[in-house]
Computed example of a mutant assay.
Amino acid sequence: MELWPMGSEKDRHVIAEANIENCGLEGTGYRYRAILSEIGNLALGIPPLVRTTEVFERHREQSVWFLLGNVVRNAMMPNCGISFDSRRDGQRHDGLALFLDVLPAAWGLSELDVETLLDLPDGWLRAWRNHEVQIDDELAFDILELGALQIGIRSLRRPSGYPGFWHNRWAADSPIGARTPWQAFSEDGRPALDAVKRYLKAGIQ
C-alpha cells in the first residue's frame, strides 16, 4: 500500500505491505501464510506493526480479494497477536527459526546477548538447537519485533555494518541520548528498543 501525498506520484512511499505465501493444498482448500507490516505514523499515534497469520480452506476459484480480506480480518482481530495453526508445532515457525538462527552472526552479538534481547534464560538457544525447547507464540512475537527493528537497520546500513549499529554512540539529542543502542537497551530494557524502532521508522536517524 502506497501513500501519494496530495496525489503526488513522485513523493509516493510504501506505508504497508502484505506478503502472502501459498503453502499448498490442505483438505478441500489451500493454506496461506501471510506477514503484514506497517511503518506506522507517530504524529497520528499509529505504532509500527508486524503480524503473521494463516488462512485455511481457501479455494483458488475465489477472487483474490476474498483471500486478502480473510488475511486482514485474521491478522487484525482483537488480541490476535500472531495467529498460527496450533496443529503444526514443528513447522509453524520455520521462517522465524531461520531468522533466529542467523541473528547472532548478522548482528555481531553473542548468543547470550540475543537471549537477553528476547528475555530468554541462559542456554536457551543451545537447548533449542538440540530440539529440547520450541518457539512458542509469545516468543514468535518477540522475534518478529526484532525483525521490525532489522528492517529499520537495513534501511540505513549494508549488512557489513549491522554489528556496528549496536555499538555506535548516538547524538546527545537522540531519543536514547549519547548512548549506543546496546547500552540503552542494557540500561532501559525494551522501551529503549521501542524508541530506536520509532526513530528509525520516522527516517530521522
Rank of each mutant, 00 (worst) to 15 (best):
R129Y: 02
R198D: 06
P78R: 11
R12T: 04
R60L: 15
D122W: 05
T180S: 03
M6C: 00
D89E: 07
H167I: 10
V133A: 02
D94E: 07
W170N: 09
I46N: 08
L36N: 00
L98R: 08
P163Y: 09
V102P: 00
E138L: 12
P163D: 07
M76N: 02
E2Y: 14
W182Y: 11
S83Q: 03
L36E: 11
I176M: 08
Q183N: 06
Q62A: 13
S37F: 07
G45L: 08
D94T: 12
H93G: 07
L149M: 10
P5R: 14
L117S: 01
S174M: 03
D142E: 05
D188Y: 05
G189I: 13
W65I: 09
A140M: 04
T116K: 08
G90D: 11
A195P: 04
G29I: 02
R60P: 10
L100K: 05
E9I: 06
A127Q: 13
D173G: 04
A184V: 09
V64P: 04
K201L: 09
L100G: 07
V14R: 15
A172W: 01
F56N: 07
C80D: 02
G177I: 13
D94R: 10
E57V: 01
I153F: 05
G7Y: 13
H131L: 11
F99W: 12
G164A: 14
P181N: 01
I39A: 13
V133G: 06
G90S: 12
L193R: 00
N22P: 02
E54G: 06
L49Y: 13
L100D: 05
E111S: 02
A127K: 14
M6W: 14
P175A: 12
P48Q: 10
S86I: 10
V133I: 09
G40H: 12
D101F: 05
A192T: 08
H13G: 12
S110D: 11
I20F: 01
P121F: 08
A140V: 03
R179Q: 15
G95A: 07
A105C: 03
E21Y: 15
G90Q: 10
G95E: 09
L112A: 09
I135R: 06
S186L: 14
R158Q: 13
